[in-house]
Each structure stands twice: as C-alpha cells, then as structure tokens.
Write a protein that binds this DNA or RNA. Structure first.
Lengths: 310, 310
DNA sequence: CGGTATCTCTGACTGAGTCAACTATCTATC
DNA sequence: GATAGATAGTTGACTCAGTCAGAGATACCG
C-alpha cells in the first residue's frame, strides 16, 4: 500500500530534517524560516515581498516582521515597486549576501556530515532516488512527448532490453524464462555482428532513463528488414513512444534501401498491433504455437516500403 | 554536487510535508507532535514514557504534559513500571486506539490526495525511490552480510546480468559493446537450454535488488564445470558477496559430481582474482588477446573439486 | 551508606507563527 | 469617473508548541 510507504517516508524524513536542524546554531542568529527567506532572496535577488509570501507560503504579518528585522540588521533594502506602489521590492545588501552565504555554508556542512555517512559509491543512487521522488511528487505533471528522445544504445542498454522484455511479459502475460532466452539471443546476435548501416537499435529515453526500445535487422528474404523487440514501459504508454520507435524503424529501413519491412508478434499484444496497423502494416499470416509456457497465436505482418512513401 | 542535491531535496520535501500538514485540522483537536505520540503508542502499544521520549526526541516536560492531556481525554492510562518504579508504563485505552485510528485515517486521506497526483504506473517507482533514500540515509548503517541472500534468477534477472556486466566493465575498464554481446550470448545459451541439475545461475539480492551474480555451466571437458559472469555491484563490495557466490558454485559443482571447476578471466580484474585464489583456484594458463576494444591478458584458472573437499 | 544519575512532573518562560484590523492602492464594472 | 471588491503591506494582540530549571522519587555504584 503506497500511502503507507509515503507516510513512513514522511515520518522518516521529518526526522532527517529535524536532525539537520537540531543544532539550532545552524541558523544563528536567525531562525529556520528566516533563513529560508534569506535563501530565497539570495537565489532570486530582486523580489517583492508578495512573491516571497507566495513562494514560501508565509503569513503576511510574519513576513513583514522578518523583513523588518532583516532591514534593521542591514541585510536588505526595501523600496516601493514601480509597477505597483503597494508592493515592496526587497533587495539584498552586500551584507545580506554575505549572511546568506554564511548560512548556506553552514547548511552545506551539516548536510555534508549527513552525506558522509553514505558510501561514495551509493551517492549517485541517492541523488537519483531523490530526483525521482521530486519529479513524481512535484505537481505530478505528466511527462510530455518532447521529453522523450530516441538515441542509440549505450553500455547496458541491450541488457536492459532483455531484462524489461522478460520482466514485463512475465508480469503481463505470464511468459516464462524461454522468452528471456529468446530476447537475449536476439540482442546477442545483434551485438556480435551487425552492419550499422543496415541494422540498428533505438532506445527511447525519458528524463535520462530508458523507457522503450526497438530493433531493426536484416531478414533472410532479400531487401527485407525485420522489426523486433518493440517495447514501451507501461508507465509511459500513451505518449506516442511506440509510434515514434516504429516510425524510426520505417524511415531508417526505407532510407537505406529495404523494400519490405516484416515483423512477428503475437495476437495477445493488442496495443502493439494497433501501432503496426496505424503505420500501414498488414497481417499476412497467423499460426498458433506453444512458446514461453503459453499457447499463443503468432502473427506475421508486412509493410511495403516501396509504396506511397511520403 | 550531491550536497546541493540533498539541500534542494530538503527544501522541496519541507514544502511537501508543510503542504500535508497545512490544514491543521488534520490533527484536530491535537497537534502534530501529539499525534506523533499517539501514532507511536498505537504501533508499540505498551511503552514507557522514557521510550517515547527517546524515540521521538521530545522534551521530558513537554511529553509529560502531552500525556497528562491524553489521560484527561481518556486516551491512555499510566501505571508505574514494575521493573523500575520511576518509569511510567503508558497504555492506550480503547478510546485512545479509536482516536489514533481516526488520525491515521485523516493522514491517509491527505497523503492519498497527494498520491492521486502520481500516475498509478509510476507509484512503484515512487515507493522504490523512497525506500532507497531511506535505506541510504538511515543512520548510514552499512548493509550487513546477513541482509544478502542468494536466490535463483527471476524474470528480467538474466537481462540484468547483461546490463550490469556491460555497464560496469564499460565504466571501469572501457570495454566496448562486444562484451555486452558476449554476455548476452552466454545468458542466451543458458536460458535456451540448460540442465537445471548441472547448470545454474545465482543472483545475490540485497534489500530486494540484485547486487551480484554468478553462473555455473558444463564445460566441454568431461566432468568439468565452468564458472562464469561473476559480478558484484561496486556499492556492495566488501560484504563477502563474491565469496558467497563462488562458494555457492563450488558447493554446487562438487555436489552434483563435477571433478573440476574452471574459469576464464582477465588479469585486470584484480578483486575477482583474489576471490578465486582464496578459494583454491590455481592459474593454469595466461594469454594476451584483443577483445572488447582493449588489449587484455586472459587467464585460465582451475580448481580440483576431488581434492580435500571438507 | 552516600553520591550520582535517571525518570517524571510542574512552574515559568520564550518565541515562532496566527489572526484581525487598518491603510493604501489596484482592478473591474456600471 | 465613481464605486465596490480584491490585494499589498503593517501593526497589535494573541496562542500555544516547545524549552529550561528545579524538585521529588528512585535506581545504580562504590
């Protein structure tokens, strides 16, 4: 139950933050809230009081007093905004910048002490996990098509293709380890010997992690290319990633002179079939078979690349 | 710079928690701290006041007053501890349990609203990332040997072997994609056809994620087994995982009647070599070769399984 | 037994944050 | 251009979460 996970995490992280703040001298002679205001000012140097209020969700009266204190201490200057004389433009003085830097330094030290307890080899995992939490929780904006990029595979990506194909089809359709072997065989053949002009793999990447793939290789038949291993991570379906991958294969195959593009799939993979249909593939044969521990119906699809190429 | 990442995350998560707590009615008629106490009581029903103080790092006087309030409201009962009459045993009443449940429910709702903004398919990633942050930051206790378990591969694990072998050796030694192809070939051969009585793969798992692997297959020579693809994630080295994996292979090979265990490695892999030496392997041949885009020196090692088997 | 530490409680206090009232100004509408 | 309503900022008054110090009771240690 994820709600429980989140609550557990909240309790945990409340303690982490509490532990960091515990030695209150961190902010001396200011408070946590005051230092947040100072931080905000240091990182967007000219802001109106109203912006600060909105950004940090502070009480207007509270903020007003904090700014009074800062002004007395010579950390800020307040001038009326030209645009709207009700608003007050707040600017850090040189001294304010110094103080902000000092507080930042202390915070860095304290966080550094925390970080020192994490083995260096694990730190990238920590950064990565924190980024994941942030992006998933921050306003939950759905990823956009433009965030997805297609690229060539790097080290480990072929293994990723094997792992994700196996794990997903095991989870969704109960296929057994034979399928993982088949995929491993396909990527092994590809890695071992392929003509980069005629055969290629694409990885779809979203925010730095792979979320899809497809492969284009030569088929036995002359001037025929074969599309294989089309996969899109469930969490990112509906972004047109499958379409883009298939388009990449079609354009590539046509561009290097193949006349036909074929593929083999199974009738249970409805989402993939719709993609193929959209791109003009036609079903040319269908045959039941027993594979991967299931009774399946294999399908051969074909696309004529010499036809009405745009 | 990871310190900055953490601080950014702290600022972010301060806001998340603040947003959740903002509607203070969440805890009405109690405060956040009071509800934390209640939560703690509900989850370890008989505790002394001193335990609560330690667990939640509260001021003794503050806690005393909170418990007074709870007692007045009929949520708890206080009795002197038998073991030490200075201590006070605190127990929730039925009414206390009800109240705790009510508060928990409200918190669940509020967290649920947050969770609702995360697409369902991404929730496992969120849980996973939070767990990672927790385990890495929680007192930085290094993982213990006992936390590592060896198991058979599940769906996707063979792909994981390919991916991690390729990514690690690319990062550490600059090996090219040929190596990924070789590993894929090895796991494909294994997956496609292996006698489970004579050939096997082990995955080392730590906190639910794979951190190491090894494979044992039949060699061409009679009564000879071959150890392949020994790998331990850098972050978890030093926990004896490599030793356990090699031991697993040796015990297995000896147990099913192999007389020899051989392996091929490269001299650059010093850490692995030390493991093999510890287990009694002897170097039988060495030959330079050019593979994976590098000039390497391959080594054949052998262990006589019929010898002084314990 | 005496000295010291620990557990709990209460009184007294601090100060972070809230609320409400007020002024001044902007914006929208008739 | 007059009026109504919203918004920005300020100040006074207040609340109440959390801290600190001291006291009584008891444990632990020599």
């Amino acid at each position: 139950m994820t709600v429980q996970d989140i609550r557990a995490f909240n309790r945990f992280y409340t303690n982490v933050i509490g532990a960091l703040d515990y030695s209150r001298h961190l902010y001396a002679p200011y408070t946590l809230t005051e230092s947040r205001v100072l931080y905000e000012l240091a990182h967007s140097p000219r802001t109106d009081a109203a912006d600060l209020r909105a950004e940090l969700t502070l009480d207007a009266g509270y903020l007003s007093r904090i700014l009074n204190k800062f002004e007395q201490d010579g950390l800020i200057e307040r001038t009326p905004s030209r645009r709207d004389p009700r608003r007050r433009r707040v600017t850090l003085t040189a001294r304010g910048r110094e103080t902000a830097a000092l507080l930042a330094e202390r915070a860095d030290e304290s966080v550094g002490a925390l970080l020192a307890t994490v083995p260096p080899a694990e730190r990238p995992r920590l950064s990565e996990a924190m980024r994941t939490v942030r992006t998933l929780l921050s306003d939950g904006r759905p990823p956009r098509r433009e965030d997805v990029v297609l690229r060539e595979p790097g080290p480990g990506d072929l293994g990723w293709i094997v792992a994700r194909n196996a794990a997903l089809y095991a989870a969704e359709y109960g296929w057994n380890a034979d399928y993982e072997g088949l995929v491993a065989r396909i990527v092994a053949d590809f890695a071992e010997d392929h003509d980069p002009h005629l055969e290629r793999v694409w990885i779809a990447e979203l925010d730095g992690r792979p979320v899809g793939c497809v492969m284009c290789v030569r088929d036995d038949a002359p001037a025929t290319a074969r599309l294989r291993l089309l996969l899109v991570e469930p969490g990112t379906r509906g972004l047109g990633i499958g379409d883009r991958l298939v388009t990449a294969v079609i354009d590539f195959a046509r561009g290097v002179g193949y006349r036909d593009l074929v593929l083999w799939t199974n009738d249970v993979l409805a989402a993939a079939r719709r993609i193929y249909q959209r791109h003009g593939f036609v079903l040319v044969a269908e045959k039941p078979h027993r594979s991967f521990g299931k009774d399946l119906t294999g399908q051969d699809w074909r696309l004529d690349l010499t036809g009405t190429g745009e």
